[in-house]
Amino acid sequence: MTRKQRRMTMIASAGAVLALSAGLVAYALRDSIVFFYGPTEIVEKGLTPGTRLRLGGLVGEGSVIRSPGQKVSFTITDAKTTVTVNYTGLLPDLFREGQGVVTEGVLEAPGRFRADSVLAKHDENYMPREVADALKKQGHWQPGDAKAGADAATPAAPAK
């Protein structure tokens, strides 16, 4: 075998090992790559308590309960399923009932979630594309209420 053939064999072997390892990593992370799960998806997938994930949806109307020590309890819904979220800390300024949020934390039990962080939508007219898609899937999307993704760049007329 010539020197050039050995070098090409070594490069091909390294490329095959790299492709195999990338494939194994992608396979192992196939469920973790999702930006967030909706409440219905959590129930359908049968995720076990202790699973770390992101949960997204709309904050339930009348569900925000504030307790001493910056403890907050609220529900996240996709209009089909509701999950109760417990969070300790300061909420974003834009956090409101009926608005889209994404929380990150641990599923404590079916229907209960302990959040480490809460992310609210960035302005009055924006909803994360994934939340809008989930609402469209459930049949609860109301065009004109909020704009998703790239449509958020165009401001809506102020409410009077």
Rank of each mutant, 00 (worst) to 15 (best):
V83T: 15
T81R: 06
E97Q: 10
A134F: 05
D93Y: 07
V34E: 09
Y37Q: 04
L24H: 08
K136Y: 08
E124R: 13
D116G: 11
P68F: 11
A132M: 11
L94S: 12
A14W: 00
V131Q: 05
K80A: 07
A153K: 13
P110D: 11
D93T: 09
K137E: 14
I33Q: 12
V106T: 14
A153N: 08
F113H: 02
S73R: 14
I33G: 09
T103S: 03
R54V: 05
D116S: 02
L90F: 12
S67H: 15
A134P: 00
G15R: 00
P143R: 01
V72E: 07
R52Y: 10
L24K: 05
G139Q: 05
E44A: 13
T81G: 07
S73N: 09
E130S: 15
V85Q: 00
V101K: 02
V102D: 08
A150K: 11
G23K: 04
H140I: 08
V17N: 03
P49A: 00
L20N: 06
N86S: 15
T75D: 15
H122Q: 06
V43Y: 07
E44D: 14
N125P: 06
D31N: 04
P128I: 03
E130D: 13
L55M: 00
E104R: 07
R30K: 15
T82V: 15
A150D: 05
G69A: 01
R129T: 13
V106I: 14
T103H: 01
L55N: 03
L107Y: 09
P128H: 07
R129Y: 12
A115D: 04
A19M: 15
E44T: 10
V34T: 13
V17P: 02
T40F: 03
I76L: 14
E108W: 09
Q70C: 03
F95D: 00
S67N: 13
K45I: 10
V17C: 06
H122P: 07
S73A: 14
A19C: 12
A19D: 08
V131S: 02
P49K: 00
A16E: 03
V72L: 02
P128L: 07
L55V: 05
E97S: 11
S73F: 11
R96H: 15
D151F: 04
A16C: 08
P143E: 03
F95C: 00
D78S: 03
V83E: 01
A109T: 04
I65W: 08
P39H: 04
Y87E: 07
V101Q: 00
S63I: 01
P110I: 11
D31G: 02
A28T: 11
N125G: 10
A148W: 11
G139I: 01
A134K: 08
R96Y: 15
K80M: 10
K147I: 04
K45E: 12
L18E: 00
L58S: 05
G60T: 02
L135H: 01
L58E: 03
T84A: 13
V25I: 14
F113S: 02
I76T: 01
L47H: 08
E108I: 11
T84N: 12
T81W: 01
N125K: 06
A109F: 04
A14N: 10
T84L: 13
K147F: 12
G89T: 00
T77A: 07
L53R: 09
G100S: 09
